[in-house]
């Protein structure tokens, strides 16, 4: 469990990035943190693995204050995949990259081999085992970064903008394995602008603006509320946009999913699906 208690954070240059943020994330929960560029999303999640320590307030990860443990200790529990994969890739081959942290954590070579193979397969990267990460496309490098974190099996996985550069198929894979992870009681936290992905995944949504939490709740409740969406500088999902325009015909406006949209329209037309 991650408990954020009235946390404020000011960068050394004086920018106040978080102001009195309180939030509880339970084990096995899937949370999407959304909001404008500069809203404080990345700053907040960097507190979860101790990369940043609060200026005021405190963060407890499984009851342990992040001020009292090293990043290295927390990293074993909280894996972090950066927005820009080039900030974390440096090995000669994809395989070495994915094995790197496992070696650091002192796993046995046999276990490492198994875990690496598992992670590469999960992210559709097996064919690139011996390729240099820098020869891969942006979307593929992003997946290598993800594989290298998933390989050591952290309890909490933080993904900063995981869908950047990913096509529809890869996004669907991502959705599937987030479901898998949460089914194993792992906590998944994503920072994202991708409203369509959030609409497809239906996580718990935390909306941020100017260093504060504006609102939190179910994806549907958050993304179909025009006021909240505007406050957080995001755009409602396409389906919601369509139905907001159709409100005066008496159709529901709280739809985010294409299948429920179809049902609503067929109902309205009196056609049985």
């Amino acid at each position: 469990m991650i408990e954020v208690k009235d946390v404020s954070f000011t960068y050394v240059n004086g920018v106040e990035a978080l102001r009195g943020v309180s939030l509880t994330i339970r084990d096995g929960e899937f949370v999407a943190i959304m909001g404008q560029n500069g809203a404080g999303k990345t700053t907040l999640v960097k507190h979860f693995n101790g990369l940043l320590k609060p200026t005021r307030g405190e963060i407890l990860v499984d009851g342990v204050n992040t001020r009292k443990v090293s990043v290295a200790t927390l990293a074993r529990k909280v894996g972090f995949v950066f927005q820009n994969p080039d900030h974390q890739l440096f090995c000669e081959t994809v395989e070495d990259e994915v094995a790197f942290a496992l070696r650091n954590f002192g796993f046995e070579e046999k276990t490492i081999k198994k875990r690496v193979a598992w992670a590469l397969n999960l992210l559709d990267l097996t064919e690139y085992r011996e390729t240099s990460p820098f020869m891969l496309s942006g979307g593929e490098r992003k997946r290598v970064a993800l594989a290298s974190v998933l390989a050591w099996n952290p309890k909490v996985v933080i993904l900063d903008e995981p869908t950047i550069g990913q096509d529809q198929k890869q996004k669907e894979r991502l959705r599937q394995f987030i479901i898998q992870l949460t089914a194993q009681q792992k906590t998944v936290i994503i920072v994202t602008h991708d409203v369509e992905f959030v609409a497809e995944c239906n996580p718990h949504v935390v909306l941020m603006a100017q260093g504060e939490i504006v609102a939190e709740g179910g994806a549907k409740q958050m993304l179909t509320n025009p006021d909240l969406v505007t406050k957080a500088s995001i755009v409602p999902p396409q389906i919601t946009q369509i139905f907001l325009e159709l409100a005066d015909l008496g159709l529901p406006t709280d739809l985010i999913d294409i299948h429920e949209a179809r049902e609503a329209l067929l109902n309205f037309l009196g056609v049985n699906s």
């Binding site: 096509d167 529809q168 198929k169 890869q170 996004k171 669907e172 369509e196 999902p237 396409q238 389906i239 369509i242 294409i258 299948h259 949209a261 179809r262 329209l265 067929l266 037309l269 056609v271 699906s273």
Partner: peptide, 20 residues
């Protein structure tokens, strides 16, 4: 091939599959 077809287009396709 997994292109992220706009939802507006997808909606018209699923409606057509249902006879609309």
């Amino acid at each position: 091939i997994g292109v992220g077809v706009p939802k507006a287009t997808r909606l018209s396709q699923v409606l057509e599959e249902s006879g609309v």
